[in-house]
Design a protein around this nucleic acid. Structure first.
Lengths: 153, 153
DNA sequence: CTCATATTGACAACATGCTGTCATTCTGCG
DNA sequence: CGCAGAATGACAGCATGTTGTCAATATGAG
């Protein structure tokens, strides 16, 4: 059944499945954290990127590991809702900079406050030490998966 | 910046971010594993569920943590491509059972063979022990996140 | 048995993110 | 300086998965 895999292979497969399931729950939790502010995980991410420093849509895409087209769609919605404005970019005529409005800053602060309460509670429940160790393995897996190219056939 | 969070809260936040990023890469890798067989992660999951035991679309949705509507769309595509058939369900007139065809079984076996090679290589690179430990933390986080309801406001 | 309730599949609308393509704008090499 | 190539935003199309709704079918309490 689960075989013709090595023990280490089985361990990785189980790890991968649990990571995928946890990611689903984290996504749901993120949406729940953003919802009272009328936002979603995707909008929160773009807001946070633009708050960190004014940047173009393509910049944010690279920072978030998304395509610029995906960020563009979300950013246009954020602009429509008055949370960001597209500011002129002295370095590039077409690539306007996303800048948070006061409303956008307030929304982001509200989400961050809720996120802090949530993360603190879960951090306490799970324990800092185990989380740090697990994070190391997750990051190692990230790098290994990136490096491990999958053969065409 | 990253504060008004406790150290454990920061550890959880960093863990969550790395898990979400890894999940993205795992999703991409899963698609790459399924692609030579002309499939995607989503179809692979449904195929595997139906292979485990013939089940209705709603059953598969529960097993996979998805809505039955989402599974339905994928299952209809699998049927169109001849990988599954809807068999009569003696226990329920409307809820037909998904059953793999010979072609579906062959496709699933091909994907699983590729997945085994991939998982073995990553398991070896990362080490069985660390993976087992990290999996424990991930599962603990899964349960904790499920339990930790997010307040409405 | 009967009827309120739950389950199931079908259909529609939407959110998110991807790839592909195009025209416009920058950038850098010669 | 001038032009090839890269970067960017705009637009279209697709895949995945969600919520909401409806009618048909099971199920269970009385």
């Amino acid at each position: 059944m689960s075989s013709d895999r090595t023990p280490a292979g089985n361990a990785f497969a189980a790890f991968a499945i649990s990571v995928l399931r946890l990611a689903g729950h984290l996504q749901t939790a993120g949406d729940a954290l953003a919802k009272p502010a009328g936002q979603t995980s995707a909008r929160w991410q773009v807001l946070a990127a633009a708050d960190h420093a004014p940047m173009s849509v393509a910049d944010a895409g690279r920072a978030l590991g998304m395509t610029r087209q995906g960020v563009q769609r979300v950013a246009d919605l954020l602009e429509r809702d008055g949370l960001i404005v597209y500011a002129e970019n002295p370095a590039h005529q077409r690539a306007k900079l996303m800048v948070l409005t006061d409303g956008g800053k307030a929304v982001l602060a509200a989400i961050r406050a809720r996120q802090a309460v949530w993360a603190d509670a879960l951090g306490e429940a799970l324990g800092e030490k185990g989380l740090l160790q697990a994070t190391e393995t997750v990051i190692a897996a990230l790098q290994a998966v990136e490096k491990q190219s999958i053969p065409e056939r």
